[in-house]
Structures are given as C-alpha cells and as structure tokens.
Amino acid sequence: MKKNSLIFLALAALAMVGVVVYSLVSENGSQLPDGFAQGNGRIEAEQIEIAPTLAGRVESVMAVEGGMVATGDVLAEMDSDELSATLDRAKAEVALAHQTKVEAEALVVQRKSELRRAAQELQRATALLTGQNISETVFEERETIHQVAAAVLGAAQARVATAESQIAAAEAEMRRIEALIEDSSLLAPTRGRVLYRLAEPGEVVAAGEPILTLLSLENVYMEVFLPARVAGLLPIGAEARIVLDALPDYSIPAFVTFVSPEAQFTPKQVETLDEREQLVFRVRVRIPEDLIQSRIEHVKTGLRGVAVIRIDPNLAWPAALEQGIPPELFE
C-alpha cells in the first residue's frame, strides 16, 4: 500500500507540473512574465530528395518508409548495365589512344633519323658546291630533301601531341562514366529517417525525379511567427524552450537560429484569425544537435506545440520552463 501511495503521489506531482507548464504557454502566452514571448509551431526537419542524376530504371530500393539510415547507407540502386558497356568502350578508346601515341613516337624516331641523314647530305653538297664539284641543281635537291625531312618530323611530333590529347580526353570520359556508375548507387547523405518511398524496382524515372524523401535529423527545429516589436529585439542565439502538445510536462531547450529580415502575414496554419491578420516575422528555434543525437530514434516531426523565447537574457526562466534533460523527449 505504501508503494502504491508513493507512485500515486509521483504521478500527481507530474500532472501538476504539466498543468503549470500548460497554463504558462496557453492563452497566447498571457501567463508569461514580461521579457518572454511565444509562438505556435510544429517540430520540423530538413527534407532531402534522393534522386538519380540520369534517367533510368530503378533496380532496387533498400530503404523502407519510417526506417532510420546512417550516412553512407545505400538507399537504392539504378540499373547501370548500359553505363557499364559505355565504360568498356571508353576503356578501349583509352587503350587505342595509347597505342596511337606509341606508333606516333616510333614515327618520330624514324623521321629524326631521316632528318639527320638529309642534314649530312646537305652538308656534303655544300662542301662540293664550294669546290664546284656538283651543280647547283644537285645542291638544291639536297636542300629540298632536308627541308622536307624537317617538315615531316614536325608533323610526326604533332601526331604525338594529338595522341596525348586523345588519351587525356578518353581518360576523362572514362572517369565521367565511372562517376555516373558510382552515382547509380543512391547513398544517404546524412543520418535521418526515410519519410517517403516514391518509386519501386522496375520503374523508369527521369533525371532528378525523387525516389526517396529523407528527413535529416541533424537540424530539428520549430518555426514560429512573432510581431515586429518582439522579433526586433531577438538576437541570434537567444534561449528558448519548446513545449509540445503531446508532452506538456516537459520543456525542451532550444535556441534562436534565424529571424526573417522581412515581415509577412501569418500563415494559415496559425489557428486564430487575429494572429493571421497581423504582419509578423518568421523565427526559427533549433533543438541542440547533441540532444537530438542522443534521442534520434525517438524524434518525430509534425508534433505541434509552442516555443517560448527569452527576450531579456538577464531574466530567470519560470520554474516550469527551467532547462532540464527530459527522458526520451519524442517517445
């Protein structure tokens, strides 16, 4: 009986804390002391579209909706048979370009030999012409042969340069295709949860068409809308507390990471007509990453609640909103 009484008292105390927190953040913050502001919102996270770089057929999808994935996990595979065949052809072109270079270099050696022989013949013809032992016609023939040999050597050397360019182009094409084949395996860019599975094996999708939508859990936040008289006083980094409708007994520590530079009308999802008619500024409060990482399996987006922001850093938090590490926030 004594143990049951203690459990009852603990539950009653917890319920009273919930009532206090709810009374503080309800009624549009009318119970909050001066120096604090609040806004309605919901838990959100960045969404990442997982899509192929090229159009093609989906070979397999390993990820399941709602499943957790780690950075680098293979989420889906695209059919890469055609790319593999293209890669084989590119490798053959690289080999052919190398062979062309070898042949061009051998031709250069031959042309250099011919140029040396022509130079020797021209040198002898010059000496003979000085002694008037040959005619000028013969000398001119030797001179022409030398000039032709020099030109042919230049052409052979140009072929070597062309072959080198062909090798570079073929190798670049090979690397491009290898990168495309690597991209046919769609990897998780960050740790998160699969929100939507949008394609199934066998389907043909366009380039950039999402196959999966991944919810990144590295940046979990709530966006609220505050009037200018409040938003203008908020510094980046201001402390906040998030109280969720599903967990009114706990306040989740957060901090301001963004204040919109432009005013706007409050979005329709804000419930009251009076609030929707006001010009407000969008404010984002983010839950610390270390707090999310320690409870990442329990994080759920879409949960509604309020964010209470401390405008004056010198003020103490109300007792019901003091920072504490609550157990399994989103369980």
Rank of each mutant, 00 (worst) to 15 (best):
E136T: 14
S185L: 10
L107R: 09
G237D: 01
L279P: 07
A10P: 09
K91A: 11
V94L: 11
V94Y: 09
L83Q: 06
E171V: 09
A172V: 02
V270P: 00
E136K: 12
E27W: 09
A240C: 00
L122Q: 12
S84Y: 09
P288C: 03
R241E: 04
D183T: 06
A12Q: 15
S60W: 00
A188D: 05
Q157W: 04
F8E: 11
A37N: 01
E331G: 14
E103H: 10
L303N: 03
P261R: 05
R310K: 11
F281T: 03
A127L: 14
G67Y: 01
T301S: 04
G67P: 00
L11S: 15
P318K: 01
V194Q: 01
V74M: 08
R310A: 01
A92Q: 09
V64K: 14
T162Y: 15
E164D: 11
Q38I: 15
R310H: 05
E164T: 08
E173T: 13
V204N: 08
A188N: 04
E141L: 13
M222T: 02
G41K: 05
G192W: 04
I177M: 04
A12E: 14
Q110H: 13
V108N: 02
V19S: 13
I177W: 04
L54V: 05
I134P: 01
V205E: 05
V69P: 00
S30N: 10
D245H: 06
E164P: 05
S60E: 09
R57D: 14
P248W: 02
A106D: 05
A125I: 08
P326V: 07
I48K: 02
P261Y: 01
A158I: 04
P210L: 02
V160N: 02
V243F: 04
E328N: 13
S60A: 10
A319N: 10
L315S: 06
A254P: 09
V58Y: 02
Q147C: 00
A125Q: 13
L234V: 13
R42A: 15
I7D: 08
L32W: 03
A263M: 14
R282F: 00
T190L: 14
K112I: 12
A70T: 12
A104R: 06
E271L: 11
R276D: 01
E218R: 11
E164N: 07
E209K: 08
G35Y: 01
V299R: 03
L187S: 08
Q157Y: 07
A76M: 00
R284F: 05
L6N: 07
T213I: 14
L107C: 07
A63C: 02
A161C: 03
G131K: 15
T137Q: 13
V17A: 12
R176S: 12
R310E: 04
L54G: 04
A95C: 04
S23G: 15
V224S: 00
V259T: 05
E77G: 07
Q123Y: 12
A307M: 06
